[in-house]
Simulated scan of single mutants.
Amino acid sequence: MYSNDIRGGLDYGLCRYGKSRVRFRGPMPDLTADLLVCLGGTETFGRFHPDPWPQLLGDRLGAEIANFGQVNAGLDLFLQDPEVLRIASGARLCVMQVIGAQNMSNRFYSVHPRRNDRFVKASDALMTLYPDVDFSQIAFTGALMTTLFDTSPERFEVVVREVQVAWVSRMRLILGHLPRPVHLLWFAESAPPANARAALIPPLKDPSFITREMLDALSSRIGGVVEIVEPASARSTEGMVFSEFDAMLAATMLSATAHDRAAQALSDCLRHLWDARGDRDDASD
């Protein structure tokens, strides 16, 4: 469980699926078994957590879990990985964590295809909108968004509306690859803001720029949204494993208690679906 890295912390058992160029958290499941596939970002990967919510959910359901969480992932990571989509499309059930909209390429800027929080290039449209910004000095999407807001909140709104529209479109594409019903997990510090304007108010919070309106736009394609909220004031690092070097970062993560709550809520929601599919399989034998 513990890493041999000089910084200490967890050994995540990183593994690669087929021809995928991304290493995901292990252990790799038996891909010939009925799978519960979990897709998402940092919380799904479970940084610093020996037992993140996907593992806890699998334990509750008695399911083989493929954890396709990735730290700072954006939707592009999944859409550009045919191996992940192939495995997920054949899963028995899928749960997808709601991840933010800023870490994906769009009409205004491009990001790294696997490390989606890395800002690669501003488009001509963004340079025209922000001629007063030196994009050569920006390396990450978080810094990009902060710079754009600080330079012009009015122009920033134009960029955010673009990434919000792109997020809904790409979520529909991803959901089209997954077996229905897909359940979404909202796993964050606060509940989804009601509308687009509410999502623009700094400080930016994960999942960035996602609103309840955007989730509602996906309602015909999903089985539901499970919401687990843990305010910053309720966070604790108890049960987490990290080095002294990572202590400050670990303190910003959702707690082990929140992961357990997420697994329990999802188990309550999915149990009848998991068991019902097992009953049908038994009847067909």
Rank of each mutant, 00 (worst) to 15 (best):
D76M: 03
F48D: 07
D51H: 14
L79G: 12
L93C: 14
D59Y: 06
H112K: 06
N72D: 08
T32V: 00
S110L: 10
E83P: 02
F48Q: 09
P54W: 06
G40H: 06
L57Y: 01
L35F: 04
P50S: 04
R107E: 15
G100F: 13
F78H: 10
G41N: 14
V95D: 05
F48L: 13
H112C: 06
W53P: 04
A88F: 07
G41H: 12
Y109R: 07
F45N: 00
A101L: 03
R107P: 07
F45D: 00
E43A: 09
A101V: 02
L56N: 09
R92M: 14
A33E: 12
I65Y: 13
I65M: 11
G100M: 12
G40A: 08
V84T: 09
R86S: 13
L35E: 07
Q97K: 08
V71D: 06
G46A: 11
R114V: 13
L36M: 07
A73Q: 10
Y109D: 01
P113I: 03
M96R: 01
I65D: 14
F108P: 01
M96H: 05
N116F: 05
F45E: 00
D117F: 12
N67F: 13
M104T: 06
L31D: 00
R47I: 11
C38A: 15
P82V: 15
A101D: 01
C38Q: 10
L85V: 04
T44S: 09
N72Q: 06
Q55A: 15
R92F: 09
Y109K: 07
Y109V: 03
I65T: 15
V95G: 06
I87G: 00
T44L: 07
L57A: 04
L75Q: 03
E43R: 06
L31C: 02
V98N: 05
V71T: 04
N106K: 06
T44G: 03
F108M: 03
P82Q: 15
N72P: 02
D117I: 08
A88G: 02
P113H: 05
N106F: 11
M28I: 00
D30K: 09
L35T: 04
A88M: 09
Q70Y: 15
L39C: 01
S89K: 12
N67H: 11
P50Y: 05
N103F: 03
M104F: 03
P52E: 08
D117A: 11
Q102I: 13
G58Q: 14
L57F: 01
G41P: 14
P82I: 14
F45Y: 02
P50T: 04
L93E: 13
L77R: 09
V84K: 01
R86L: 08
G46P: 09
L36N: 07
P113G: 05
M104L: 07
F45V: 01
Q97T: 12
H49E: 14
D34A: 15
P52C: 05
P113L: 01
D51S: 13
T42V: 12
V71M: 05
T44H: 02
A88H: 01
E83I: 01
P82R: 13
I65H: 12
